[in-house]
């Protein structure tokens, strides 16, 4: 008897949201679901300059405000500024007054980053805080919330087709290493169930990483020392340099790193198979376009390499 009555109570609680909904009701992958959102939002504020901003712009969502101050990808920031998007400050502490002034009809945010602000945000406009780890699910949810499911499905269909075509051409016996070079050490994003988006794309394209870079648990990242990078013994080495946003800063760090004799001893470097890849896609991944740029690199450096 308890369970059915619980369901009835839950349904009654959710009923106002469902009954008054003039637009669409979103049930999954967002905080505080179900949430009623407008059918065709016209003034959208996004709260993070990563997935939400990049993906929203990609599928033509009319974004009026975003935290451009902390946007890590200069290209994305320039596109946002060209689209006259108003800056709402820091993504970790969005400026609520500026959001109110923008009169949004929908607020998009990230479940982990913005969950604490939900109550305040929901009083300004319907708020969808997307809460799903996989980048493709994130993209689909964003399309669902903004009424553009057809666009997201089509974009992912094209991506999947390309990724599986690459996978079918992938030689079975090569291992690839990927490393991020940062100012105070290396970051290695692993291939595993919780892989960060660019590395999940690699997996989907059939790229096999080395044993050190593969995991069965939810570890996302390892921070190897100079001594440990010897474990990155793939035939090809892709490296991302992320020192900072100043011009020349990345190049300076790259020069210092590749001059180190221990770097030169890596198998891929010795064999001439080490390539620097673009920071925008590998560090500031934010859209299906980023995923395609990862695939570009796979074709360029892994498929066509000798």
């Amino acid at each position: 008897m308890r369970l059915p009555s619980l369901i009835v109570i839950l349904f009654l609680c959710a009923w106002p949201a469902l009954a008054d909904c003039g637009g669409r009701t979103i049930f999954g992958h967002i905080l505080q679901a179900p949430v009623c959102v407008p059918g065709n939002p016209q003034r959208v504020v996004v709260l993070d300059p990563f997935y939400n901003l990049g993906m929203a712009l990609e599928i033509g969502v009319p974004v009026v405000g975003a935290p451009l101050l902390t946007a890590p990808d200069a290209g994305l920031r320039a596109r946002a500024q060209a689209a006259s998007i108003v800056d709402i400050g820091d993504t970790r502490q969005p400026d609520l007054e500026r959001i109110v002034a923008l009169k949004p009809d929908l607020i998009l945010g990230d479940g982990q980053l913005h969950g604490q602000f939900y109550d305040k945000l929901a009083r300004i406009a319907p708020t969808a805080l997307i809460d799903v780890a996989d980048w493709k699910d994130y993209f689909l949810t964003l399309g669902d919330v903004t009424g553009r499911s057809d666009k997201t499905a089509e974009a992912l269909r094209i991506f999947r087709k390309r990724a599986s075509a690459i996978k079918s051409r992938m030689p079975a016996d090569i291992e690839v290493s990927v490393i991020r070079v940062a100012t105070h050490g290396f970051h290695v994003y692993l291939d595993g169930p919780a892989a960060y988006a660019p590395y999940a794309v690699l997996h989907e394209a059939g790229v096999k990483r080395t044993a050190y870079e593969t995991t069965g648990d939810d570890t996302v990242l390892k921070r190897p020392t100079w001594e440990e990078i010897a474990e990155l013994n793939g035939r090809t080495l892709l490296y991302v340099v992320a020192a900072g946003n100043r011009p020349g800063q990345d190049d300076e760090l790259e020069a210092e790193t590749i001059a180190n004799p221990l770097w030169k001893m890596l198998p891929a470097v010795e064999a001439g198979g080490a390539y620097r890849v673009d920071k925008a896609a590998w560090f500031g991944f934010n859209s299906v376009a980023s995923a395609h740029r990862i695939l570009d690199d796979v074709e360029r450096y892994i498929l066509t390499a000798p």
Binding site: G244, Q249, E256
Partner: peptide, 9 residues
């Protein structure tokens, strides 16, 4: 790091 752009540790 941030203002002068010194990357070398």
């Amino acid at each position: 790091m941030s203002l002068l752009g010194v990357a070398s540790s």
